[in-house]
């Protein structure tokens, strides 16, 4: 049996092992050295960053965490980076979600970014956690005209009517920007359809701005909405790494001498296992094709030889 034939019938568990090594070895190396690859922002990421940068002081930003622990590997670094950026600009932050498993992820983000890095910020005045609401797009339909009808209490059970920073919020149109972290349904598409699109006609005054961070599976499907209905988009872990680099650079520029904690390089660190995982995928596809075509050719030659035999 030739090498190619052996490879053709190889036990798939060897491929699994290769994938495990391709991902884990770079994690160990980058984890020990702390080194990351340089990142340059792609247009969708850059426009997301620029949209937040262009907001005036005192802007109100709604951060919708529509994901769960299953996709946190991709989206949590984006959530951290977005929150850091928004918090560093001293915008008012409103956290909410349409995904039942997301509230602990919101609390985690608030703890690691706001409580740890911006202890001067006051709950209810500078940021609020509105928690989860059931109903998917139906919630969006309600909050597009009456925010407090759907989000009656915050995650702690406090009525929103007694939260100071909720006083000016009547509907989603009162936000200057919506940031959505989306792992599927309901997510970015629904925010585009129910919240942003109705404001594009001009009948509602100003157009509502939406920026999103989406999983790899969703990214290609959301691109058609950019840049009109979606002002910016972080596509998968690469988008997160690019955005993280942009935020870190802008914070270091604003605060010379600032040392960025390694906690905030998570996505950039992940680009190492990503690189080797992708290289393995490409190699496997090429190898699979080489085997296929060489066997086809060999089969073809054999058939020809058979046919030419009297």
């Amino acid at each position: 049996m030739s090498l190619l034939e052996r490879l053709d019938i190889i036990d798939r568990r060897w491929i699994f092992l290769l994938m495990a090594l391709a991902v884990s070895i770079p994690i160990i190396v980058s984890g020990m050295t702390g080194k990351t690859f340089p990142e340059s922002a792609t247009p969708t990421t850059q426009t997301a960053f620029d949209t937040i940068e262009s907001l005036p002081a005192g802007s109100k930003v709604l951060l919708a965490f529509d994901f769960d622990p299953a996709s946190a590997g991709e989206l949590q670094p984006m959530a951290i980076a977005f929150t850091r950026h928004v918090a560093s600009r001293d915008f008012d932050m409103y956290f909410a979600t349409l995904w039942a498993p997301a509230p602990p992820l919101i609390i985690e983000t608030i703890k690691s970014v706001i409580v740890a890095g911006h202890p001067h910020m006051v709950y209810g005045v500078d940021y609020v956690n509105l928690g989860f609401q059931a109903g998917n797009e139906s919630v969006l339909k309600v909050i597009s005209t009456d925010f407090k009808q759907s989000f009656t209490v915050d995650a702690r059970g406090t009525p929103v009517t007694s939260i100071p920073m909720m006083a000016d919020i009547k509907s989603t149109e009162d936000f200057d920007l919506i940031i959505n972290l989306s792992a599927g349904y309901p997510g970015c598409k629904e925010w585009v359809q129910y919240i942003v699109s109705p404001t594009l006609s001009g009948d509602h005054g100003t157009e509502l701005k939406l920026v999103a961070g989406v999983t790899g599976v969703q990214a290609p499907q959301m691109v058609p909405y950019w840049p009109r209905q979606l002002k910016g988009m972080l596509a998968a872990i690469k988008g997160a790494a690019e955005y993280e680099a942009l935020v870190n650079a802008s914070l270091m520029e604003a605060n010379p001498g600032l040392i960025i904690s390694p906690v905030f390089n998570e996505a950039q660190r992940r680009m190492a296992p990503q690189l080797f995982g992708h290289l393995l995928m490409v190699s496997l596809i090429i190898l699979g094709n080489v085997i296929h075509f060489s066997r086809k050719r060999a089969g073809g030659t054999a058939v020809k030889a058979l046919r030419s035999t009297p």
């Binding site: 994938m19 495990a20 991902v23 884990s24 994690i27 160990i28 984890g31 020990m32 299953a70 996709s71 946190a72 590997g73 991709e74 999983t215 790899g216 599976v217 990214a219 290609p220 596509a235 998968a236 872990i237 690469k238 992940r270 296992p273 990503q274 995982g277 992708h278 995928m281």
Partner: peptide, 25 residues
């Protein structure tokens, strides 16, 4: 992009095992 997403999730799990549990990194 799907491959990218899946590998990112796998990397996150491996990082949990190597960092939070095994304390290797």
């Amino acid at each position: 992009f799907t491959v990218m997403g899946r590998i990112a999730l796998l990397a996150a799990r491996f990082e949990f095992m190597l960092d939070d549990w095994l304390w290797l990194i």
